[in-house]
Design a binder for these strands. Structure first.
Lengths: 243, 243
DNA sequence: ATTAGTTGTCTACACAAATAGACAAATAGG
DNA sequence: CCTATTTGTCTATTTGTGTAGACAACTAAT
């Protein structure tokens, strides 16, 4: 197709480029005319048109015949604080957003080496695997997979299904409070299954957090892997004032 | 091309899928035969072959005629702690890695609204913009763009060019110590310019951190936006034991 | 040596992507 | 009203992607 053949069509690259200039460089009101964009990106005008059509379908721009192509006012990313207290519901409500958790699936599994180490259990220990999903104001934000000791939290699945919140479900299982010990962060392309559940594009990007929550005696409670849609989220880590 | 037309070719999606099964599901030694993969992904064998060729070019797998296709031993992601002390060089050396910073470019600019707010300066205040790049053991890891007050740190560009470290450059400008106040995190596709500088694929994913460093009197020192290559990095946030 | 299973290479064809050019339709400014 | 600019639509052509089938080359086990 071009010099570099990375399997991404030209119009998609142009669309990504224009999107980037809108997001980063902050192109606010109007895009350059199609002929100019075509010259900039070194492609045919029709290719630019297709790119713009894709962006219009995303709701990012709007083309008006005879006038030009304009950038729609974009909604800011939702902020999600990571730190000691990682409580989805509370954090969302603080931003006057309506959170809701949804059970997607559950399974009884046994601990492999990684899980056993993370949760401080024996190899092969029985676990509850809980797949859930976070929706804010009707918009899917993230998919998570939690692992709990089945011996310590036998009723966790049912409790979550009713409460729609990990914090509340753990409280019903007798755990008053917990804190986050560690969060590891990276980013990937969304998996096909997650793309389906989150109703996003198949090539969307997710922020992946692998974390461990512990009780007040520092015993592991859950290992949780969450995939946040990067274009709808922003993770924030704030250091305390006088540290 | 397929049901959903997102401008990503089929072999690229298959390649991404196989890469994901290697990374996540942990397919260690051998891939299923091409005919099986073709059936799994619902594509022709030739399409799978092209996907495998791309993965082979990335160095992830290696095909051997008559035997099969095998997964190459993969190097683990480099861990980068985010927290109060965000010092690239020190953090890398703690993992016995050889860090080095490189000046990519610099510019005198004036503060727009966002920068003025972040740095606590007046609108239009003179700034030094410093574009740099972090390389560890010869592998490019990240690109950063820093903004400093030109009045407070007039010699920062030259100092960085010589030292190759922000911490050292600030010390030469009379700042003994600083800390990170806030880190905001998201993820995007790499920009064409960064892809070129980091010598990575054009469709790679970067972890983006927007952060503000402050001196010991909590006055802003630099606003820094860093793009980490997600497949070479992992950001880690650890909470202190007794918090 | 034979056989089954696997990757490598070739040809051919259908279809999508990208280019090229021309012109219509709407807008804005003099 | 006229003109320049800009988006929308049409046709045609070339190049790339994916599918299909066949066969060669190599490996490992029987």
């Amino acid at each position: 197709m071009d010099g570099q053949d990375d399997g991404i069509s030209r119009w998609r690259r142009v669309a990504d480029g224009i999107r980037a200039s809108i997001m980063e460089a902050g192109v606010t009101d109007r895009l350059p005319p199609e002929t100019d964009l075509a010259a900039d990106y070194g492609v045919n005008r029709h290719t630019v048109r297709r790119a713009i059509a894709a962006l219009a379908a995303e709701g990012i721009v709007r083309a008006e015949r005879g006038r030009g192509t304009f950038v729609n006012p974009l909604e800011p990313r939702i902020s999600y604080p990571i730190g000691t207290r990682a409580r989805f519901s509370e954090n969302m409500m603080r931003q006057s957003l309506e959170p809701s958790g949804r059970l997607v699936g559950s399974q009884k599994v046994s601990a492999d080496m990684g899980m056993a180490r993370l949760l401080g259990l024996a190899l092969g220990a029985p676990l509850h695997r809980l797949d859930h999903m976070a929706v804010v104001d009707g918009v899917p934000l993230s998919r998570s997979t939690s692992h709990f000791s089945a011996e310590r939290f036998p009723g966790i699945i049912a409790a979550y299904a009713q409460e729609g919140s990990i914090t509340q479900a753990l409280r019903r299982c007798g755990l008053a409070d917990y804190r986050r010990r560690e969060t590891r962060l990276t980013a990937e392309r969304v998996s096909p299954g997650d793309a389906d559940a989150l109703s996003c594009a198949g090539d969307a990007i997710v922020l992946v957090t692998n974390a461990v929550d512990v009780d007040l005696e520092d015993r592991p409670v859950q290992a949780i892997r969450t995939r946040f849609l990067a274009d709808r989220m922003e993770l924030v880590f704030v250091n305390p004032e006088g540290a």
